[in-house]
Amino acid sequence: MVLPFDINNIFSASESSLDQYCNAVFQLQYEYNKVYRQWVDLINPTNAAFKIPQNIPALPISFFKNHSIVTGEHMVQKVFESSGTTGVITSQHHIVDLSIYEKSFIKGFELQYGAIKDWCILALLPAYLERDHSSLVYMANKMIQMSESKQSGFYLYNYNDLAKTLMSLESAGQKTLLLGVTFALLDFSEQFPIQLNHTVVMETGGMKGRGRELTRLELHKTLSQRFGVKNIHAEYGMTELLSQAYSKGNGRYQSPPWMKVYVRKEDDPFEIFTEGTGLIQIIDLANIYSCSFIATQDIGRVYADGSFEVLGRMDHSDIRGCSLLVV
C-alpha cells in the first residue's frame, strides 16, 4: 500500500486543501482497511459519493475494543491501550508509524503553547504510569525529553517532591506545564495549595472509580482556587486518536487543522452538523494507518469557529455493530 500523498503534508495543509486530503484518506482506508470497508458497505450500500468530509461514514469507537483497526498490511510498532477497570474490555490502537503520532502531538501542542523546549514539563499521571501501553504517558515522556529544563519529569504519588519542584520553578520564573490526571490534581492541590504565577495547570480527565464525578465547572473552580490561577487548561485526547485538542479555559477546545470535530444526532447518525449539540464525531488525519473517521460516545457542542466543548457521555452502552461484521 502506497500513501497517495506525503503524510507530512497534512500537518501544514490549508483549509482549502483539507477536503481533498479527507477524501483521499477515505478512499485509501475504504480500500485497505477491511473492518472499515465492511462498516461503510453496511451503512451505505448504495456507495453514494461523499463530497464533503462531514458526510464520510464514521466508525463507532467501540470497534477498537473488538477489532484490529489497521489500514494496509504493515508491521505494528506499538499498541496503545485505553484505561479500564478490571474485567472491562479496553480499546487497542495499533500504531504502524510512531513518528506520525509524535509529529501530531508535538505540532498540535506547539501551535497552542509554543516550543516544548521552553517549558518545564511536570507530569502527574499516576493512574497511567501504573499500567503499560498508555499513549498519554508516551506523549508526556517525549515532551519531557524535548524540554530543556532539567527539572522536567514524572510524578507518581510523591506530592512532597512535586510541591518543592513547583515552588523552585515559581521562584525562578520558569514557564511550567503541570499536566495531571484529574483525581491526582485534586489530591495534590488539597494537600499543597500553591500560588502559581508561571505555571499552566492542565487536566487530562480521569475520575472514574476515584470518588464523586465533578462537573467541569466544579473541578475547574476548585483547582483555580487552590492554585490561585484564573483558568484551568485541559487536553482532549483518547487512545483511538493520534491528535489532541486543547482548552485554555472555560472548557472550549481548539483542534489542530488536521483534526475536525462535528456533531451528529443521537437518533439519526446520518444527520451531521458543523455546529450545534449532539454526539461528537471526529476526523483525525493523523490516523492514516488506522481509521481517520471516528464516531465517539461523547456529547458535545461545536461552535461556528470550530471550537467545541464536551458536555458528557452517553448514558447507555457502547454503540453496537461489531457482530454485524464478518472479519
Rank of each mutant, 00 (worst) to 15 (best):
G300F: 07
S68T: 15
N9C: 15
A24Y: 06
N23E: 10
L185R: 01
H316V: 14
E266A: 08
M238T: 04
R252D: 02
S152D: 05
K248F: 05
L42E: 13
L325K: 02
P45L: 09
A123F: 03
I294V: 15
K221C: 08
A234E: 12
C22L: 05
S247I: 03
L242N: 11
P256I: 06
S12Q: 15
M1S: 12
R210L: 05
S17T: 13
S149K: 01
I10W: 12
K117M: 05
E240A: 01
E218C: 06
E148V: 01
L3S: 08
F293V: 01
H133V: 00
R252V: 09
D268Q: 07
V200A: 13
R264W: 07
K65V: 06
L18W: 10
Y32W: 09
F80L: 00
V200N: 14
S91E: 12
M202T: 11
A48Q: 15
R37S: 11
K175M: 13
F105A: 08
S83A: 09
L59M: 13
A304H: 14
D41Y: 01
Y101L: 13
Q27V: 10
Q77E: 15
S307Q: 15
L162E: 00
S247P: 00
Y155A: 09
V76H: 02
E31S: 10
H198K: 11
I144W: 00
T85K: 15
Q29E: 07
D6C: 10
T71H: 04
G249M: 09
Q281I: 10
Y32E: 11
D318W: 14
P57V: 08
H198R: 09
A58T: 07
C322L: 09
T46P: 08
I319W: 11
Y289W: 11
H233T: 03
T222N: 08
P256R: 11
N66Y: 12
A58P: 00
S68D: 13
Q92Y: 10
E110N: 04
T199P: 02
N287S: 09
A172G: 07
L279S: 08
A304F: 13
E110I: 01
D19F: 14
E203Q: 15
V70K: 01
Y36H: 06
T176V: 06
A163R: 07
T165I: 11
S83L: 06
P193W: 08
H93V: 05
H198D: 07
L214V: 06
I116W: 08
R313L: 12
P257G: 00
N23P: 00
L111T: 12
K34C: 12
S152M: 03
N47E: 14
G237W: 04
M143N: 03
S171G: 10
G205C: 05
S17C: 11
H94Q: 12
L223I: 06
P256T: 10
P257K: 04
A172F: 04
P256F: 05
E130W: 13
